[in-house]
Design a protein around this nucleic acid. Structure first.
Lengths: 335, 335
DNA sequence: TAGTTTAGCTAAATCGTTTAAGCAAATTGT
DNA sequence: ACAATTTGCTTAAACGATTTAGCTAAACTA
């Protein structure tokens, strides 16, 4: 477990560690090390099993070749897939990823940002929680490379990769109206995140565009922490309305999952009469024999763009903040 | 973005950086720094916004407070949840987690192990791929702290955290027999991993214990890379058998998902006649109106134990290899 | 009064790299 | 044959912490 250092090699060969460093970094030619010596060093390094100590290198160069990734919860399918995409793309650049989950808690994300910075990650990819704006502003000021994914803040121009929540939401709701649905309920996340707000705006716009009135009794909000109970309650209340609703539109897959679970357990037959929509999907949606309309987020692309934007910042010190907005795609599943 | 160092503080105050280091590490009393001076240092550090550089500390102390986590694929629900559990428990110890996916490819995991070691992680938590045994043996020899999770190797005594695959599998199959099922097919992963082998053994044992013959035409193997097609083919072949089978038992949730998807699309009615079982579950299994028997892995506990075992090794240089075997629980869902 | 303790602090080494600067010998040019 | 250049290598500082060993002055002991 005790490792071989440059110095060990240099001592063995009776040369300076500078020389060994040059050779090991492939700068032998550039640094005018003789072929003969280069060979000798490489051979000895191999023989002794030399591997560079990344910490030492990072300390000296200021580059750790590590990215920090902060999400709400890596055990959530969306974030898990995003993490994988980010991992893959980061690898392409020779980077690794250190991650942390914030649980939508700004205190937690603040701490994670701080720790990752002190661990000298070269850049941060953040799915910010509500209230993270203060940290983001600080990063901005410090010119620390970062990219926001999935959510962003209107007040601070950042590098951002998101889907077009408003348009996506609009299209889902609009489609329902075109199918003749009039009473379209929405169950939304009120975490104060702009992506969720945008989904609500899309909903409102679609109603308006079709001459329908926004009915506040058809809009239910649930919190992150009380998600399960509150979603059930929301659905329960919606189903109990006197005038039957035509559609329940969930603003993300977690809510759709919880809502569906409740309905299937307690009021399965109602699914013959109402439509279910979800802004994004979970893996088995199309296994379920329930008519549904749902979006599919371009998760791979989100991750890829996020990493690419970080890399641009790392390479060029600072770039004009760029916003990448990706479209989401839809599936209608009829039974 | 340029950070304050111990030296910066020491210069401001006209004291040595040793002193500042002692104070910042809470060793002021122990090192007989006067109260007065301690106060001054703390105040100045706060004023200047000092944060320790973990790289420098790690280089000097040999402790990076980072764990390396290597799994088959973090986008897979099982691993995503495991990662979260590990993250949480690691945080309890003041650790962060750097992760990588191997895709069951031993070359990839070998590279990840190497990189993480060179990034000086204090320990590795590995879900080893087939063929990783050579790396594991090396870690063993080097006394590098590591824990195997989910899978292990019979040849090398390691710290290991797994579920009891054989017993779990036995009970599922045994239950089917007790329900009067005779022709029980199994679709298994042939990645050469001991956990999958054990699930097959459990299957065989259960048949044997009930006086049933093992029928090789009822056992189908699929590979990691050809998973989707091969699972579909396996199910297709099973359903085409002349004598109708009674049960299809999938050895994990991915296979169960793919198999079910195929059945629902192509031969839905057969679900009235055959049972579906899965060794472990995916989130929405109980949303589907299909009778099923499936296990649920104690993922939280797996992660927690894994981290605890790593921490023990880190704290005490070396401990007697310990094997933690956790039970899995079952749900029967009848319709 | 002299010797010993103790309080309070510092110098310098160390971890393993990278890199700016520089030096002696060999080679080239004229 | 002498200066200029090139070749091949080295020295030493730096990155930012931790830690060992030790120093000085004051306080205590006898």
């Amino acid at each position: 477990m005790k490792k071989v250092s440059l110095e060990d090699i240099s001592k063995e060969l009776g040369v300076s560690k500078t020389l060994v460093s040059f050779v090991m970094n492939g700068r032998a030619k550039e640094k005018r090390i003789s072929e003969e010596m280069t060979e000798k060093v490489l051979a000895k390094a191999k023989e002794m099993g030399y591997k560079a100590n990344y910490l030492a290198r990072a300390l000296r160069t200021g580059k750790s070749n590590t990215l920090g990734l902060i999400m709400a919860d890596i055990s959530n399918a969306f974030f898990a897939k995003l993490a994988r995409s980010i991992e893959n793309e980061a690898n392409e650049f020779g980077y690794n990823v250190i991650f942390g989950s914030s649980d939508e808690d700004s205190i937690k994300s603040g701490k994670l940002i701080e720790v990752f910075k002190n661990k000298k990650v070269d850049g941060l990819i953040i799915c910010p929680a509500m209230g993270d704006i203060k940290y983001i502003k600080r990063l901005q000021k410090e010119k620390y490379p970062y990219v926001l994914v999935d959510r962003y803040f209107a007040d601070v121009k950042s590098n951002v990769v998101v889907v077009n929540n408003q348009i996506g939401s609009y299209e889902i709701v609009n489609d329902q109206v075109k199918q003749g649905k009039k009473k379209i309920a929405m169950v939304n996340f009120n975490v104060g995140l702009i992506n969720m707000d945008d989904r609500f705006i899309g909903y409102k716009e679609a109603l308006k565009a079709n001459g329908l009135e926004l009915d506040h009794s058809l809009v239910k909000n649930v919190s992150f922490r009380g998600m399960e109970n509150e979603t059930e309650l929301a659905v329960k209340e919606l189903l109990e309305q006197k005038d039957r609703i035509d559609t329940i539109y969930f603003s993300n897959n977690q809510l759709a999952f919880l809502g569906l679970k409740y309905i299937i357990k307690n009021n399965k037959s109602v699914l013959d009469k109402i439509n279910i929509c979800s802004f994004d999907s979970f893996a088995v949606m199309d296994l379920m024999e329930i008519p549904m309309v749902y979006g599919t987020q371009p998760i791979k692309e989100l991750g890829k763009h996020a990493v690419d934007l970080i890399m641009k910042q790392i390479d060029s010190d600072t770039i004009q903040p760029q916003e990448v907005v990706l479209p989401i795609s839809y599936s209608k599943k009829m039974i």
